[in-house]
Write a protein that binds this DNA or RNA. Structure first.
Length: 479
RNA sequence: CGGGGUGUAGCGCAGCCCGGUAGCGCACUCGCUUUGGGAGCGAGUGGUCGCCGGUUCGAAUCCGGCCACCCCGACCA
């Protein structure tokens, strides 16, 4: 009889989300409002995310560096739109060394300002371009309404910052990151289907020319912005005086980009794949891919079972990330449930009967309970596990993709849109203004999540204004 | 910042209306028995009742003030 420790999704989605985090020991609340402690299990997932992204970021030619947490207040003020966007949410340090500071320092909400300052010093010639930098850092944004992983006052992320000689180069960079880093990572490693597109003026980054994004659908039909990539034009180059001499010996401003994904991805992971039993982690991302649970009665059987496990696991030759749960005080049933709630993709059970018959019990997390469990021969087990992990990865992706498709509707009227966004996304022709967009948000609480790259060939009528247009956008309620 | 809710053991709660010095479940510790889907029994440990003040012989309980956190909205990765 399972204990009711996780509120079912159908009953209270928000509570379910918090329960999964508590049960899987991903994070805790900190003593400061809006801040969280990322616990070892949650941090291990973040390290896997970091590894997958870092490798892709480096493969596309970027180098890691680190810039300071504190930014002079005046730096933030240099780019008008940027300061307007971030001013309300910056934390400011006014005292240090026991004295009032001459100039207040802000804890970075993002690092365009401080990095722009360095770029101006480093870049002199067209030969210095492109400059491709990434940093792994924490940032601080004073949030009105925090939510674990999705919106916390302090969060961890990577932020890429690059400078280019031409607008075309900057645009190419912005899109390369979206495609080769973010899209690829989300779909391949996280098994998370994401919609690629451009943000509207209303939704773009404060100070950017254009913002591109990947948007994911959560199991309640709401949208989560999973990553953004900005073409900053020459806005920051002008604000921070980042100039270079081109091949014709003339002085020109560089074109910059910035792009980031954060610990919010852990929230996406939870809400995309998990179920009422707890976390479901895709195998490629899972810190532990296979957990082995020994089954035995008393001290007499224990050594033989542990020996057998040792032999079986060493035959896998390090192919998987494995945890042997040899804790003697817990019953097997308890362990099954614990690892299930922590999202470990595959469980292997080895008991006296298995030793006798040369079998093991093999259970898959995406089919919880006894239904996902079968007894299989020890022979060829490693290949079987490899296949199973691969199959789970694919099936999680397919399931999430099917969910998104089932919850995305093409709509041709405002009424249809209102109905569609109650359960998911609405795809519609759109020729409205920023004000029209605001109005829709006020009336429906939905926003334009993206102008998808995938656009129709034929024209249609704007859902609000009735004007003929070829542009299709996707509406949804966002996290 | 608006609306709602909650603060009593590590967690979840009861006790408060009707004041008399704190209890239950889980967890934790020890022992024995257990172990293929959240083990059983027994014995224990653990609390300035969010904070400050007031009323009273006496406050978790009544009164006043404050604080914190969670949930739902406006702003955001």
């Amino acid at each position: 009889m399972p204990k009711e420790t996780i509120t079912p999704r159908g009953k209270d989605y928000s509570q379910w989300y918090l329960d999964v985090i508590a049960q899987a020991e991903l994070a805790d609340y900190a003593p400061v409002r809006g801040c969280m402690v990322i616990r070892p299990t949650g941090y291990a997932i973040w390290e896997r995310i970091q590894a997958g992204l870092d490798q892709r970021i480096k493969a596309t030619g970027h180098s890691n560096a680190y810039f300071p947490l504190f930014i002079p207040w005046s730096f933030l003020m240099k780019e008008a739109e940027h300061v307007e966007g971030f001013e309300p949410e910056v934390a400011v340090v006014t005292r240090g060394g026991g004295e009032e500071l001459a100039e207040p320092l802000v804890a970075r909400p993002t690092s365009e300002a401080i990095i722009g300052h360095s770029f101006a010093k480093w870049i002199h010639s067209w030969r210095d371009l492109p400059l491709l930098i990434n940093q792994w850092a924490n940032v601080v944004r004073w949030e009105m309404r925090p939510r674990l992983f999705l919106r916390t006052t302090e969060f961890l992320w990577q932020e890429g910052h690059t400078a280019h000689a031409t607008e075309a180069d900057a645009e190419e960079e912005t899109l390369r990151i979206l495609n080769e880093v973010y899209f690829d990572f989300a779909e391949k490693e996280m098994a998370l289907p994401v919609l690629k597109g451009r943000k509207t003026e209303n939704e773009k980054f404060a100070g950017a020319l254009r913002t591109y994004c990947i948007e994911a659908m959560m199991q309640d039909g709401r949208a989560l912005q999973a990553g953004t990539s900005h073409n900053l034009g020459q806005n920051f180059a002008r604000a921070f005086d980042i100039k270079y001499q081109n091949a014709d010996n003339a002085e020109d401003y560089v074109w910059t980009t910035s792009w980031g994904v954060s610990t919010r991805l852990i929230g996406a992971l939870i809400m995309a794949h998990s179920d009422d039993e707890g976390l479901v982690c895709p195998p490629r991302l899972a810190p532990i891919q296979v957990v082995v649970v020994p089954i035995y009665k008393g001290d007499a059987e224990r050594p033989a079972v542990l020996e057998a496990i040792d032999r079986i696991v060493s035959a896998w030759d390090g192919r998987f990330r494995v945890k042997i749960d040899d804790r003697d005080q817990m019953t097997p049933g308890f362990k099954f449930n614990e690892w299930e709630s922590k999202g470990v993709p595959v469980r292997v059970e080895v008991g006296p009967r298995d030793i006798e018959k040369g079998t093991v019990a093999l259970a898959r997390r995406d089919v919880p309970g006894k239904e996902g469990k079968q007894f299989v021969p020890q022979e060829g087990l490693a290949d079987r596990i490899a296949d199973l992990l691969h199959d789970i990865q694919q099936s999680l992706y397919q399931k999430a993709l099917r969910f998104r498709e089932d919850h995305t509707r093409d709509v041709t009227s405002y009424d249809e849109l209102k109905e569609a966004i109650e359960t998911g996304w609405a795809r519609a022709y759109w020729a409205g203004t920023s004000e029209d967009e605001d109005r829709i948000q006020q009336e429906t609480r939905a926003t334009i999540r993206a102008i998808p790259f995938d656009q129709p060939d034929a024209a249609g009528k704007c859902i609000l204004t009735g004007k003929e247009t070829t542009q299709v956008v996707v509406f949804g309620k966002a996290y």
